[in-house]
Structures are given as C-alpha cells and as structure tokens.
C-alpha cells in the first residue's frame, strides 16, 4: 500500500476514476468492430462519457493528493497493481452479449450510485456525480434495451445472453463492498454506502431480466480484490495498450 492510499478522499476518487477509465477503454476497443454502425457509434459515445467522467475524477484525485500528479500522470504512469478498479470492468469484451451485460450490470449500479453521491458533502464529488448520473441514465437504457432484444431474441442470442450473465454475475459483488477507506468517508457524509444501492440496482435489473427471459445465477460466491490492486491478468494487457505512448515516449505531447 502506498502512502497516498492512506488519504481516503484521494484513494476514493481514484477508485471511481479507475472504474470509469477501464470500462471506457474496454468499450473503445469496439470502435470499428461493432456488429452494426449504430452500435459502433453508441459504444464509442458511451466510452467517451466514461473517459470524460474518469478525467474529472483523476483531475480531482491529483488535486486532493497535492503532489503534482495530473489526470494524465494518474492514468498513464501507474502500473496494474496500483489500479483500484473493480474486476468487472476489466473483463474482456467477449461477444456482444458479454459487453452489453457487463454494461447493464455496471450502469444499473453506477446510475443510482452517482445519483446518491450528488448529496455528497464534498462539492466536487457532488458536481461530478450530478454530471455522470445524467449520462449514465442513457447507458442504462441502451444496455437494458439490448439485453431484452438479445435475451428475448433468437435461441442463439438468448443462449449467449444467459452465458454472459452467468460469467459476469460473480464479479458484481465487488460493486457493493466497502472497506475502511470508504467507511471513513461514509461517516463524514462524503460518500454513500454502496450496499444501500443494491435494492435500487435490483429494481432496475429484475424487470429487464424478466422481460429478456434471463435467469439470475444462483451462485453466491463473488470475486474480489480489485480495490486492493489484485487484478485479473486482463488489466495488464489493457494498460499495455492504454499506456504505450507515455511509457515509450514519456511526456510526449500532441
């Protein structure tokens, strides 16, 4: 654990930023590869929203840290072990169903979460949350409509959607975990308890899964470790591409 990790507000802003950046990067990988042009545009636009949210959060984390690291330094100059994103967002895109289900599971949480965070006593976090929540509302609708189309579509699309849900479900537990860093901030009103978002998350998801004819997996075992820097092998590959330019040509500028 680095010293900076002991500043809860810095650590916390960084977590939120890492979640948004890694998912945004994942979605950007679809650019030029989506099944139809409209989806290429949609996934690219959602990636832009998420990367924009990440930029605001990194800039704030750097300011809070006060050691001169800006948004680029935080995104491009930390190795996988220093990233604090949840494991869900780094999972590979898989087929279109995996991408859409990952999107629904994340946005279905992030939308009510950021709405709740607008009441934060920290004015900057509240402002970023208000901005993000509006954007995430569209992400939920996009992923929800596709989940229904896939789940309630052909036999093949249904099978793929159900497989995607089974594969990703064990990564959802981490979204609701809180540790000492977060509890300190919950106590002071800087953030909200993630566990409290679960009922809203289910209220969004359950009717979509019902209409899509998808069965919720029954397993209760959940992956964990992202917040402590223990990642799946995938994150290193993401960073190899995301950070290549700054690693190969440090301080390169447009």
């Amino acid at each position: 654990m680095t010293r900076a990790d002991q500043t809860p507000l810095f650590a916390y802003s960084l977590r939120l930023a890492d979640d948004a950046l890694v998912l945004g990067h994942r979605l950007s990988e679809w650019c030029g590869h989506a099944p139809v042009l409209e989806e290429d545009l949609a996934l690219g636009n959602i990636a832009l929203d998420l990367i924009g949210q990440a930029r605001s959060l990194y800039a704030y984390a750097g300011e809070v840290e006060g050691r001169g690291r800006d948004e680029d330094a935080l995104a491009y100059r930390r190795d996988a072990g220093e990233y604090r994103n949840i494991l869900l967002v780094e999972q590979p895109n898989g087929d279109f169903a995996v991408t859409i289900l990952r999107q629904l599971l994340y946005a279905g949480f992030a939308h009510p979460f950021f709405e709740a965070l607008t009441t934060s006593k920290d004015a900057t976090l509240a402002a970023i949350a208000a901005k993000s929540a509006k954007e995430l509302a569209y992400h939920v609708r996009h992923a929800g409509e596709w989940t229904i189309r896939l789940g309630d579509g052909t036999q093949e699309s249904h099978r793929r959607a159900q497989d995607a849900l089974e594969e990703l479900w064990p990564y959802t537990g981490e979204m609701f975990e809180s540790d000492d860093v977060e509890r300190a901030l919950i106590d002071t009103g800087v953030t909200v308890d993630r566990a409290g978002i679960r009922p809203q998350w289910r209220r969004t998801l359950d009717p979509i899964f019902a209409e899509a004819d998808l069965q919720l997996p029954s397993g209760e075992w959940m992956h964990s470790g992202g917040r402590a820097g223990r990642h799946s092998e995938h994150l290193g590959h993401i960073l190899a591409e995301l950070q290549f330019l700054q690693r190969a040509y440090p301080d390169a500028r447009w």
Partner: peptide
C-alpha cells in the same frame, strides 16, 4: 428512434 446515440454524445439518431 434508430439509436440512442448519434454522431455525437448529445444526439440520438
């Protein structure tokens, strides 16, 4: 509506 997202984030198609 054809798509929730158009040529820019602020527009739908």
């Amino acid at each position: 509506r054809i798509s929730e997202f158009g040529s820019t984030p602020c527009k739908a198609l």
